[in-house]
Amino acid sequence: MSRPKLAVDIRGLMKRFGRSTAVDTVGLSIRPGSTLGLLGPNGAGKSTTLRMLMGMLRPTAGSINVLGRDLATEAAQIKQRVGYVPDANYAYRWMTVERVIRFCRPMYRHWNDDRCAELLDMFQLSANKKIGSLSKGMLAKLSLLLALSHEPDLLVLDEPLSGLDPIARDDFIEGVMRGICSGTQTILFSSHQLDEVSKLADDVAIMNHGRVLIHRPLDELLSSFKRVRAVLQDGRLPAVIPKGTIWQSVNRREWALTVQDVDDTLIDQLKSENSVDSIEVAELSLDELFRDFIRGDETPDDQRHEKAQCEAAEC
């Protein structure tokens, strides 16, 4: 089969549970060999999206294409090429590590015993230990070992690092890094560990309330959004909020805004349309940008201005 243009192509994905919409017209695409970090606060719909991608949950609407195949009709073939590390704990508590490996092995045509042994050694997992007695870090590593031993083309990790101590986290990331370095394995991981995402991801997508707020290459995202800090003249409030503003706040005379595509023209316009004394532009880290996207999304557009006025009035 020829290599598809996209390793993952999700369009118009919806999931409703009763009246609530957990995933709302989500579109995501991942180039083969690249790493996408899916970000969002708890309850944003990340896990639900990943579970639909893994065929564990049926979408209300939308299409999912994985490695050039349609998930609705070719789920079994897709499963052979995908490794999944769920966020939930391991089920087979009574089995030993070795037993679990022997149990999973026949499910995959491409299982690689050498790779499995290498990972077992690297993660220092003892084959005869009971699953029930493993620490959270060890369980996560075992879960990754099972996902990587059949050398999947796509690796899906749901909150892989949450609750792991720094040493276990390092081991886990090292296991994942080998795939990233191969350049052929596509990786999708959800996380709120922004430090790790900014170090590992090629692209990021930020979700909130079931929707994707932005989906971009990470370096492009960090270079296009900037924090603008303007000092307002005495007794004045912002008059015109620039286009491309994702979040803003007024505190005393300081007007802070996070804006897309900040250039000289935008700054000149901001100066001419508002009564400000000075303007400063600063770069943002992913951590700060993520907060601004979420905070901005929590404030509806029509209320943004009023809210800014209230905050200014209080001081």
Binding site: E174, M177, R178, I180, G183, K199, L200, D202
Partner: peptide, 12 residues
């Protein structure tokens, strides 16, 4: 590759 693994940063 070696530096990527050492500092856990994307090789790109």
């Amino acid at each position: 590759r070696a530096l990527a693994i050492e500092i856990r940063v994307n090789p790109n």
